[in-house]
Design a binder for these strands. Structure first.
Lengths: 233, 233
DNA sequence: GTTCACCCACTTGGCAACAAGATAGAGTAA
DNA sequence: TTACTCTATCTTGTTGCCAAGTGGGTGAAC
């Protein structure tokens, strides 16, 4: 296991150091095994790890090749401007796709965050953020139908939650304290974000209240691909 | 590969859902293989993944067991108080160990951040943060001998960089903009932080300038184990 | 000369058999 | 009864072989 990680470390630094360039062919498993005097299984496991980390891809019968590097987007987390404005400011080709709007079953954590009673209907609105044709983040908002009466009708049209708020007559918002954690994507997130299982996601949990009334408007979870962003806080 | 990830997802949710408790024995590889109608190799790979994620541990001849869960420390990233004060406030048993203080070779990134000339001597001071006997973070500061003349003498005694600044006559500091990214630990970091290779680290890069003179005092990198903290920003 | 079929060498992928460690229980001798 | 040993069987760990996919080279057929 230790030998594998040594190999992984060496190969990653070789790739990042430019020894192998994107789409270059890596040495065959047998060659590397010979070179490092380890069983081929070790090299195999190292290559599998590099695949799941997104550094390389392998083709049966051909070989293993260096993956193209991902784009790096500097992202200001603490700012007050919206995601779309940030992206446009940085001149990235930016797009938002509404994934779904559906009523959720009772979930104690979500209901508590929204200060909602168990009999309230809570809707989940998910949007996918795409930058330069790369899916980079999933933005999920939980809102109560008590607060937004027509969410079940217009929910699937929403791509900017701030526009939605304003259309509902809310003007001054206050962001709640954000919690940041690191998680690995589940199968659904992997397929939506088109990433491998070992691309860590930065999960940002937050909320938004209306300043005028103190009403909790939403509880949000944003899953950012950690390999696409440089976060400035 | 897909079958493996399905198994991994199922097992993680079983563990987190309480189906298996810490130190419980998991089904043997053959049992699970039979149950899910997959080759043992798939189960083996899933178990290996869970090991590297820190969820389980395996003993040859005995079986695979659920790992104890890690402590969760809420950490205010944006505050102005020092790490030690934060910890003491939260009543955790907190300790800092000086790992090393050594002169580094020329490194363009570090020298640029410090606005240092190539002929300056830059020292790297590393401290290990330990909470409840668990190593949770590595704090590395780069400082120039031009700014801190006696760093080569007292560097290995430093556990609080703020105390060091004050002892050198600097009083008012200003934190530079912080950059946050997610990385996997290299071998050295794994051994210091006693973590497995798939525990993501949150890397926080920042700097500090003296408000009176504008001198760049330090460039810092903090590697936090992402499985030990809940970050509040 | 051109084309096509075949074969071989080399690649990654997968699996089955074997190795090694642990444990419980039967068997045996004091 | 007690203590010890051996063995059968279960566990995880390792290895080596073969399958499957690819591409290039060779040579026969036209």
């Amino acid at each position: 296991m230790c030998e594998k990680m040594i190999l992984v470390d060496v190969l990653i630094s070789d790739i990042q150091g430019g020894k192998y360039k994107p789409n270059d062919k890596l040495p065959s498993e047998n060659q590397l095994a010979e070179q490092f005097q380890v069983p081929r299984m070790i090299v195999r496991k190292a290559y599998e790890r590099l695949q799941e980390l997104g550094f390389i891809y392998s083709r049966q019968g051909k070989g293993s090749y260096v993956q193209n590097q991902k784009l790096q987007i500097p992202l200001i987390l603490s700012g007050d401007i919206s995601f779309s404005e940030k992206m446009r400011e940085l001149e990235f080709d930016f797009e938002t796709v509404n994934l779904c709007c559906e009523k959720i079953d009772y979930d104690s954590k979500v209901y508590h965050k929204l200060q909602a009673k168990p009999e309230e209907h809570i809707y989940k609105i998910s949007r996918l953020r795409i930058v330069n044709d790369v899916p980079v983040a999933i933005h999920t908002s939980y809102v109560s139908q008590e607060v937004f009466g027509n969410v079940d009708e217009v929910g699937e049209e929403i791509t900017s939650i701030f526009h939605f708020y304003k259309s509902q007559g809310y003007r001054d918002f206050m962001g709640l304290r954000s919690h940041l954690s690191v998680v690995f994507p589940n199968q659904e997130e992997r397929s939506i974000l088109k990433c491998t299982s070992l691309v860590p996601l930065i999960l940002l949990e937050s909320g938004c209240v209306d300043q005028a009334t103190g009403t909790v408007l939403e509880y949000t979870k944003i899953h950012y691909r950690s390999d696409c962003f440089t976060y400035v806080i």
